[in-house]
Amino acid sequence: MIISVASGKGGTGKTTVATNLALSVPNAQILDCDVEEPNSHIFIKPEIKSKEYVFIPVPKVNEAKCDGCGKCQEVCAYNAIAVVNKKVLIFPELCHGCGSCSYFCPQHAIKEVNKEIGFVETGKKRDLLFTQGKLNIGEAMSPPVIKAVKKHINSAQVNIIDAPPGTSCPVITAIKKSDFCILVTEPTPFGLNDLILAVEVLRKLSISFGVVINRSDLGDRKTDDYCRKENIAVLMKIPFKKEIASAYSKGIPAVEQFPEYKQRFKDLFNLINEK
């Protein structure tokens, strides 16, 4: 089973929900796919056991063979190549590693070489398995790292994916093939605006989903009204409590500080399992 936790708006509580859920259900694995700034480890505190590097293929030109025809520039969909004065300029940070340039080069002058863009670490905290990806600083292309994290999904387990914020490629890559997606939101105008965008994405991807409203006693009723109108299940509400925020700031998951939350997250899992 794969449950992803996404949000639209950042800072609504994805990691709070993902880590507490992972700590509350048996036979679980948490996969931190927010590879630009993975932070589940702060709450899980796993013992890291392995590290593997993630590479993407980028073009390298053999200048002795290249006649500067410009075909590579023409076929590159990502503007990662310029050819001026018969000289090929490559911009690796724009490259998506699709391989079109080397495939179409009439002179066979382009070879793809591996460029490291990040890494994946795996580990454990008691029975909970832990996997996280980290994109190297300065790299823009997070989906290959997210895909490398998702290779560690084990179908015999409850896999909980902590997704990046937003609604673009990294989010799609992270939540694709999930059995269920939890959308974490907050009852503010920004929270609702971005929730609506995220709902559109999930409907397009045909993934079942429900909403968790964090800091539910702040803001207004518009998020509730929207969910009712759209027939979206509100699975859980987490109140705005200083004690929860205080524990969070120390890296202590709510379920460890407040045992009653363990049951609440178990209930959340059971609710999803029934759907």
């Binding site: 503007n79 990662a80 911009f91 724009l94």
Partner: peptide, 28 residues
């Protein structure tokens, strides 16, 4: 979406201009 500096630079080369007058130019 991205790489527009590269693309626009390429276009300038294709049009064989000798100088570009603008506000700002990025690294690519």
């Amino acid at each position: 979406m991205g790489g527009v500096g590269v693309q626009s630079g390429q276009f300038m080369a294709e049009r064989a201009v000798r100088a570009v007058l603008t506000g700002n130019v990025g690294p690519n």
